[in-house]
Amino acid sequence: MKFHKYYAFGLNIDSELPLPELTQSSHETGDVKITFDKTPENLNEINGKGALYQVNDRQFLFRLETVGSYWVTEGDHIKIERLNNSTDQEIRLFLLGSAFGALIHQRGLLPLHGSSVIKGNKVLTIVGASGAGKSSLSARLIKEGFKLLADDVSVINENSNKLFIYPGVLRIKLWQDVMRVLNEDPSLYDKVRPQLEKYNWSDHNNVFRNDAEPNTIISLSTKNSAGIEINQVHGFEKFNILKNNTYRYRFLEGMNQMEKHFNIVNKLAQRTNIYTIKRPISPVELDKLAAIAISTLN
């Protein structure tokens, strides 16, 4: 079987399915294998579950009837069963989201729910809930000369006593209204899925494909009054922000990986500057928001 080789999330990946959103690699030995295969209906032992997933110490099973089933085992293998004649693009969307999220947790790495961009050696990681404006702000920063390091999920780990943030998915998913604000023509880009007005926006000249060091983290949220508020966070609140913005935190609870998670979150809290930025829910004011975000790097 021919495998496509990629480097992402700090891992060498061998995949039966082409993954154009990731960085190609020429590694010899892979850390993670992705194959098409049968997946089970249920896990034998279930320590945690959600509407679409089951999890135990070593396995994770995710099933979206309209797209596919993903069986993630031992932090090194994702088996995919295509359902409902879904397209490769749809399979990739949930592979690079929930399935990789689980694999990253299985390996004890920290996936933050946020996008990262880099300029010079300064990395800005923007975390926040869905709808906070992470992707919009990242896209706006790329227009200010930043390069995209990771969209939506930023993976962090420690190596030789240094923290690294790894290149991840190198496209940004943008809704139609944000594309307009950014003066981008949606018709020039592929839809994330045919039924959604959401597009895969990417600029291959503005991506960063190497490991970097985390630097500044912004926790972005919305408020119902005018004006943008920024505050630097100190002490235990830093830890809380990182814990609360851990991607798919509920997966962890069934995995027995809480201690590793606690340790890395603790180190990251100590070694980064963390800010909260609250923006009006509308209008988005991306220009102002970008200027304020950039000011945190000085």
């Binding site: 509407a51 995710f62 979206l64 949930f94 929930s98 869905s130 998913k173 994330v192 959604l196």
Partner: peptide, 11 residues
């Protein structure tokens, strides 16, 4: 959180 998927990727 309770489904394990981003609703923003769903119809």
């Amino acid at each position: 959180e309770y489904s394990g998927v981003s609703s923003s990727d769903l119809s």
